[in-house]
C-alpha cells in the first residue's frame, strides 16, 4: 500500500499504548507472583495442620476459603500452592525458553548439518504427546521437584526452539545480517546484537504462552497424581485431593480451580491484548 508511506510516523511511545484489559491481566499476574513470593507471611495456619473438625467446611470468618477433605485451611493451602504452581512453572519455562531460544538462534545462523541434526532431534521430541511424556518419565524416575521441573523444561524446549528458529531464519535473510557478515563479524555478535533485539518482542509473547502450557501440564500431572506429592500440593493436586467434595459443591474444589483459571486466562488475555506493534511481529 503506497499511500501509507505518506503517513507521518507517530511518536514512539504512542505506538505502545496498552489497553485496559491488558493492564487488568497484568495486575492479576503480578498479584499471584507477589503471593507466591510472600506466601509464608500471608498464610493463616500451617498448611499441614488439621484445624477444623468439619471436613469440606464452608467459607467462614476463620476459614476464608473453607476447609479441605481433612479439615485443613484451604486459604493457606492455596497461598502455598501458588509457590509450587507459579514457582515450578516459572523455573521450567525459563530453562525451556533460554535453551530453546539460544539453540534456535544458533541453528538459524550456523545452518548446515548443525541445524539439520538439532532440528531433527527437536522434531522427534515434539512428536511425543506432552502428558504421555510426563507420565512415562515419572513412572521411570519417580516424582520429585527436580524431576518435574526438568521434565517440563524438556517437554517445552522444542516448541521454543522452533519458534525462535523460525524468527531467526527470517531475520537471517535480511541484508543487515549479510552486511554484518561481509564486515567480518563473529557468530556471537550477530546473534546478540543483530538478531536478538529484533525477535525479543515475539519471544516474550511466546514465553507467556509457554508458561500457560506448563501451568496446564503441571496441574494436569498433579491432578493425575504424578505431580507435586503430598503433603505438599500445587493447585492441580488441591483439585484432585478435594474432588470428592465436588458432589456437594465444596469451596475446597472451587477455589484452586479458580486460582488456575485466573492465572492462565490472565496471561493469555494479556498476550492477546498486547499492542499491535508487538503482536504483528509475533504472528
Amino acid at each position: 500500500m503506497k499511500a501509507t508511506d505518506a503517513i507521518p510516523v507517530a511518536s514512539r511511545r504512542s505506538r505502545y499504548k496498552f489497553n485496559r484489559v491488558a493492564i487488568a491481566c497484568f495486575a492479576v499476574i503480578i498479584a499471584w507472583t507477589l503471593v507466591a513470593i510472600f506466601a509464608p507471611l500471608v498464610v493463616r495456619y500451617p498448611i499441614g495442620k488439621i484445624v477444623d473438625y468439619n471436613y469440606f467446611g464452608p467459607i467462614s470468618w476463620n476459614f476464608w476459603m473453607g476447609t479441605d477433605y481433612l479439615g485443613r485451611d484451604m486459604f493457606s493451602r492455596i497461598i502455598m500452592g501458588a509457590r509450587f504452581t507459579v514457582g515450578i512453572s516459572l523455573i521450567a519455562v525459563l530453562i525451556a525458553c533460554f535453551n530453546g531460544v539460544v539453540v534456535g538462534m544458533m541453528a538459524a545462523v550456523v545452518g548446515g548439518w548443525f541445524d539439520t541434526i538439532v532440528s531433527r532431534v527437536m522434531d522427534a521430541l515434539i512428536s511425543i504427546p506432552s502428558k504421555l511424556f510426563g507420565l512415562v518419565v515419572v513412572a521411570g524416575a519417580g516424582s520429585s521437584l527436580p524431576v518435574l521441573v526438568l521434565t517440563l523444561a524438556v517437554i517445552y524446549t522444542p516448541g521454543s526452539y522452533r519458534f525462535a528458529r523460525a524468527f531467526a531464519v527470517n531475520i537471517n535473510t535480511m541484508d543487515y545480517i549479510t552486511v554484518a557478515r561481509a564486515r567480518g563479524e563473529r557468530l556471537g555478535y550477530i546473534i546478540r546484537s543483530e538478531i536478538l533485539p529484533n525477535i525479543l518482542a515475539p519471544i516474550l509473547a511466546d514465553f507467556g504462552l509457554r508458561f500457560v502450557y506448563i501451568v496446564l501440564l503441571l496441574s494436569g500431572l498433579s491432578f493425575l497424581g504424578v505431580g507435586v506429592q503430598p503433603p505438599n500440593a500445587d493447585w492441580g493436586a488441591l483439585v484432585r485431593e478435594n474432588l470428592d467434595g465436588l458432589s456437594f459443591g465444596a469451596p475446597a474444589v472451587m477455589f484452586p480451580s479458580l486460582a488456575i483459571a485466573t492465572l492462565t486466562i490472565s496471561v493469555n488475555l494479556l498476550i492477546d491484548n498486547l499492542p499491535q506493534k508487538i503482536r504483528d511481529r509475533s504472528e
Binding site: V212, G220, G236, V239, S257, A261, V267, N268, L269
Partner: peptide, 14 residues
C-alpha cells in the same frame, strides 16, 4: 481463549 486457558480437568469437573 477461556477454554484453552484452563486445564482439561477443570472443564471435566465443571
Amino acid at each position: 481463549v477461556g477454554f484453552i486457558s484452563v486445564p482439561e480437568f477443570l472443564i471435566a469437573t465443571a
